[in-house]
Amino acid sequence: MSTQVFYFVATLSIIFSLMVIFAKNPIHSVLYLILTFFTFTVHYVLLNAQFLAVVNFIVYMGAIMVLFLFVLMLLNLNKETEPVKSPLIKIVGVIAGCCLIVTLVGSFKAATITSPLILKNPGLGLVENLGKELFGPFLLPFELSSLLLLAAMVGAVLLSKRDEVEA
């Protein structure tokens, strides 16, 4: 049953991510992106990674996408304000897309299909085990990435702060 659910949800993920690209209205695009993230959450649950599922839910669906929506609503993009792209850019885009497809197909063909990977510990995704892994063997990378986030945050605050002299 889990396999059928997986295929169903995977189909939905692909449909929604295609809709993100094909939707004319940027707001609709973001809403489809939210749905896509929701299907990802279901994928995590199917993988028994509850913590990752909930974090994906809170951070991506609940926070980041709200900010996306926020900015787009403020911009109020319309069809009229959208700049008309020249045919040259369209041709360049098509060629770049084709190159990407060729590269992807090549790399996937090279990858040999191995037997399915089976986790030694199926409860790895639960909060307790994840915490032990993160704060045990992976402590240094974990702390380093948090430092990176802190640096980004300080940078963002600095950028948004008005110049004291001007004000």
Partner: peptide, 25 residues
């Protein structure tokens, strides 16, 4: 009784704003 119950509540709360945002827009 999911073992991330507190986070689930938190997620639902953060999702609640979409109703208001979508309706308002």
């Amino acid at each position: 009784d999911i073992n991330v119950g507190v986070l689930y509540i938190f997620g639902v709360v953060s999702l609640g704003v979409y109703g208001v945002m979508i309706g308002g827009w």
